[in-house]
Amino acid sequence: MTALRRLTGVGLAAWFLLPLVPLVLWAAADVWRAPAALPQQWGSSGWSAAAAAGGWAAAGRSLGLAAVVAVLGTLLGAAAAAALDGGRLRAPRTITALLLAPVALPPLAVALGLDVLLLRLGVPAPVGVVAVLTVAALPYTTYALRVALAGMDRGYAEEARLLGATPAVVWRRVRLPLLAPAVATAALLAFLVGWSDYVVTLTVGGGQLVTLPLLLGSAASGVGDEPTVAALALSAVLPPLAAALLVARLARGRTG
């Protein structure tokens, strides 16, 4: 049993980490020609090229976009989850289905359709991108918070009431702290939606909002400057990984 589990663990790790190996090698290579197993010449030319191509500014825009989507997506998701949990909605199933719909729809079709609509309405491109991505993040945030709310023992809130806390104080002092890990998870998911989006930023944004994925896309479609592409790709992979580890730590710290 343990042997099987260990094997699965190693397999999963390989599945996730192996694709990163060539990226790491390319990002640290100046020259690496075809038959060689390792780069002929190590260096950081990829990173300087990425910086020169506007990597820092793109990373900043990505971070800003992801942060805004995380905040808006979590707030709206919390509102939706609270409304669904309250049991006072008329058609909770229909509303749940609508909220989860963005996961089911092909993003490119939605983005192209919305692009036309938003252009006609005269909505500024960055606002449109934020709006569409927030809706795309809602299924994840609503789901994460809905599960947490449903799993929350109402005994805690009732006990707090009897100990003298008004409903508002119960929310601030009892419910939110109990929900903190779920809120962090929801925010992380929404952050990832904003951080890793390519299609919506490209179509709805109309090239005005150059984020890291857009820069990476254009670099990758150009002629083989692999070190630059690898450097940009790693920059796109590492922040979410760090954020995920942070959230996992936070969630673990809470259970003690």
Binding site: D153, G155, Y156, E159, P177
Partner: peptide, 14 residues
């Protein structure tokens, strides 16, 4: 009134 329930219901974050 205060209540002592079947479960202690202590706040885990405090």
């Amino acid at each position: 009134m205060a209540m002592l329930a079947q479960r202690p219901l202590l706040f885990g974050h405090l």
